[in-house]
Design a binder for these strands. Structure first.
Length: 263
DNA sequence: GCGACAG
DNA sequence: ATCTTGTCGC
């Protein structure tokens, strides 16, 4: 479950007339472990994608936005020192307050290759998710799911490996085509691979560059977009992504500063 | 063959 | 992703 890192959990004193609430979210840390049989070559990696693609579930609507938990995951790198840090931040979907967060540090397991991002990010993300003290609910990834050359991006892959509902929210359109969505927040246009809709360009702030949403596992595109809008009351990127990004960067800095190779 | 290409 | 200072704006 959790690794050798520090573990802290605090609960504030219960006060009469006020609902008990965790004021200081749980913070755990973990070590990245590269799964047995993790592909070593691009050819092997593509074969894994082709094999796992059929296990994606796309006929479930997914959890409704605004209730339960929503979790953001993200990864940061220091290729010079062969360091990787992943973060998982669980939010209360109703308030967007942080409920729990974990960081995992380790060694880089795969180079960045367009179309094979999952093999670089997933070992670290799995370690972070495993260390969470609570259920993550929908997991929002920084990248794509269905919108992928072989229709099996990071979010799809993570969903299949964990069984959790997942969605991808990317900052760039990758190789896909899209029309410019209308200017108001909430406007969207299809993200197209030929004539196939693989995702949606979704405007989360008036007049600001859209984000690119695609389905991962056990959610529909409509549900994924509804969550994305719910998670962007103020900024272009979902709060889940923003929180996870900040945490994995901090974890990476601290690991580099302490010379912690994480393995 | 060449360029583009989530993070 | 990451390299990087100041700067404009809420």
């Amino acid at each position: 479950m959790h690794g050798a890192g520090p573990r802290r959990r605090r609960t504030p004193p219960r006060r009469a007339g006020r609902r008990a609430r965790t004021l200081v979210p749980t913070m755990t840390s973990a070590r990245v472990r590269i799964p047995d049989g993790w592909p070593a070559t691009e050819e092997q990696a593509r074969a894994v994608q082709d094999e796992l693609r059929g296990r994606v579930v796309r006929d479930e609507p997914g959890p409704p936005p605004g209730r339960g938990h929503v979790t953001g995951v993200d990864v940061a790198y220091d290729d010079e020192r062969d360091l990787v840090a992943a973060a998982a931040v669980v939010l209360d979907a109703a308030t967007l307050d942080v409920v729990a967060e974990t960081a995992a540090v380790g060694r880089v397991s795969f180079p960045y290759v367009p179309g094979l991002l999952a093999f670089r990010e997933i070992p670290a993300v799995l370690a972070a998710l495993d260390a969470l003290p609570c259920g993550p609910g929908l997991v929002v990834c920084d990248g794509y799911g269905l919108a992928h050359p072989r229709r099996f991006g990071l979010a799809s892959h993570l969903g299949v490996l964990t069984g959790l509902p997942t969605a991808g929210v990317a900052k760039n359109p990758f190789t896909f085509a899209h029309a410019e969505p209308g200017a108001p927040r909430g406007s969207s246009s299809p993200l197209l691979a030929g004539d196939e809709e693989v995702g949606r360009a979704l405007r989360t702030r008036d007049g600001v560059k859209p984000v690119f949403v695609s389905v991962g596992h056990r959610v529909t595109l409509d549900t994924a977009c509804a969550h994305t809008l719910w998670l962007t009351p103020r900024f272009r990127l979902p709060e889940t992504t923003r929180r996870a990004d900040a945490l994995c960067r901090r974890a990476l800095r601290e690991a580099a500063a302490s010379g912690d190779a994480g393995a």
